[in-house]
Amino acid sequence: MINLQRLHTRAAFFRVLRSFFYQHDFLEVDTPVRQPVLIPETNIQPPASEDWLLQTSPELCMKRLLALGAGRIFQICPCFRRGERGRLHSEEFLMLEWYRRAADYHQLMRDCEELIRTVSGGLAEADCFAGIDLSGRWPQITVAEAFARFSPVPLERALEEGSFDEVMVEDIEPRLGLQQPYFLCDYPAEMASLARRSPADLQVAERFELYIRGVEVANGFSELADAQEQRQRFTQEIEHIKAQWGRQAAMPEQFLAALPAMGESAGIALGVDRLLMLALNKTALQDVQTFSAEDL
């Protein structure tokens, strides 16, 4: 459980986050955490709440607000993921998501740089992100480059034999963001269910992950606005979920109906507890959460 001094730091951290978005003309929004239909994702398990589900991300609702005409929106809200427990995982955690119309993932990377520098300067602690150089533009490395540099097996083989995740965890992630934050970008298209394919290379999606000290902090992408392609991808994902978990996931019909009105947009989800943990040079979420599962 948190101590009183850190409770104050946590409150200051929220103030800094919110004031950043107010200054950049973002509208703060709130959406229901309990919903009948979520994004179908094989690797993310939502907890059930009676016959509805607790959200794993506010993404679908927030994109529907973009479709309504909102230009820049943000939200800080609880998200839930069943079975995720550890130093960097918590079954309930706080997510910060922000979305911009008429923007792509490059703009989100600039947002991350500015936001995290603002956090570092806005907290009273003197040694935020100790040893990490936050200045300037942060390096970008594509997934293909990261495999070429750090992986014992080439990307194509890892995808074929299904060892992509193992290589990421064992060989790539621990090497990212040690001196400067790193953007790992351009994921294989099949690993970015809601992201737009890159016009320059249809094999990859305009998706990135931000890493600091080997820890994944945020996941952003240029949004896929093509409802037909989105439906195809969801259909595939629903089949995977059925095959792997025996659960029948529903198609997010209302989201698909709203999608054409969303237009070109970009959105990102950032783990709030992880960012505070890194800012305070801690190594476990439990060091910065108000209550962790063990305290309840």
Partner: peptide, 14 residues
């Protein structure tokens, strides 16, 4: 023991 999960990937138990 450490629970890991690379972005959008599957749960891994190291």
């Amino acid at each position: 023991f450490e629970f890991s999960k690379p972005g959008k990937g599957q749960a891994l138990y190291r």
